[in-house]
Simulated scan of single mutants.
Amino acid sequence: MNTWSSWRDATHRALYGTGGFYLRPEGPAGHFRTSVHASPLFAGALARLARAAGLRTVVDMGAGRGELLVALRRADPALELHGVDVAARPEALPPSIGWSAEIPAGRAALLVANEWLDNVPVDVVEVDADGVTRIVEVESGTGRERLGPEASGADAAWLDRWWPVKGAEPGTRAEIGAPRDAAWAAAVESLDGGLAVAIDYGHERATRPPQGTLTGYRQGRMVAPVPDGTCDVTSHVAVDAIAAAAEAAGAAGTLHLTQRQALHALGVRGTRPPYELARSDPRGYLSALRDAGEAGELTARGGLGDFRWLVQGAGTPVPTPLAALARA
């Protein structure tokens, strides 16, 4: 039966409720391609980051079906790995890799949230014809919308600080990122030393999109966001807001990067190998050529390279080479 509710409630049911999108057998990989699926070079870069920070444990938030964890195990078998996800532990996951529905507290670790926060459900607001900012309500089975009550209290305060829409043109929309702030701060606070890295499409206060970013994905294609459990429902992350929330929880050394910048600093570059190598080592040349192509995809402008990396220390300084970018 179709029901009306806020986007936050409808998205939570659609993604994580009974039969929800993220609990379906095919998992996220059946619908969209992430950096993890694009190349093992991504996992290799994260393994190097862990080593550079002196960390032997990696915690993968929103671990899906364990793809990043398996790739990290191949990149560095000495790493202690743990996945966190609402989905059940994948049957094929090696027994040495830990798994839980909640973040294991009290560990010094590299905590990686790759495309996790964009799926923490949030409410959507819209400015009506009278200039009032109202919560948008949605019908679960159709995606039809209507304007609900005025945004007030903590919601209004968050909008005033991070995504001001007062006085904006009617029809202007925004997404209230407070649940993501809380989720990220809790994740960072769970660490007993280490680094936290959030990787997602994102924006900052000066560049908020006036129509918001709410959308859906199904089988590799962007579709209308209908919260019926058959598609992903997602929106970009207010990266400055989550950074401030983590800093309030004790994080330090905040660094904002694009994925292109971060992966270049960690040694992932789409540089074509010299032709001379094809004569002296044909197999090595083909391998290097493949790596260059995959690196190019991971760092491409207008694609995966535009992902935002938020790197924050939780008792561990942001290591070189990433820290060097803050001084560049």
Rank of each mutant, 00 (worst) to 15 (best):
V59E: 06
P170T: 10
V188Q: 11
L286H: 10
L191D: 10
N114G: 09
I242V: 10
G293H: 05
Y275L: 04
P104I: 03
P210W: 15
G305K: 02
V318A: 08
D291C: 13
T254R: 12
E139K: 01
P225M: 03
G64D: 06
L289R: 05
V138N: 01
A71M: 04
S287T: 15
E297M: 12
L147F: 01
D9G: 03
L110F: 12
P179A: 08
A252P: 08
P209F: 15
Q312W: 13
R8S: 08
R146C: 10
A246W: 15
L322H: 06
A183G: 05
A108M: 05
P225F: 05
G44Y: 09
A52S: 14
G171M: 14
A182F: 00
N119C: 10
Y22P: 00
A88K: 06
V86N: 08
S39C: 02
L286D: 14
I103N: 09
A238L: 09
A168Q: 01
E145W: 01
R208K: 08
V59R: 07
I97C: 07
A47E: 14
R272G: 04
R144M: 13
T11W: 09
H37M: 05
A288L: 06
V132E: 00
A47Y: 15
R327G: 11
G229A: 04
L322T: 02
V223E: 04
T213P: 12
Y22I: 00
V120A: 08
A249P: 10
D128I: 02
T271Y: 01
A314K: 07
C231Q: 03
S39D: 06
E91C: 12
E276D: 03
P95E: 15
W7I: 07
P210D: 14
L69T: 05
T11D: 11
D181E: 15
D281H: 02
V223H: 03
A186I: 10
K166D: 15
A243E: 14
M61D: 07
R301Q: 14
D160N: 09
I97R: 01
R205M: 13
G253S: 11
L255Q: 12
G216T: 04
T234S: 15
A300G: 08
W163Y: 04
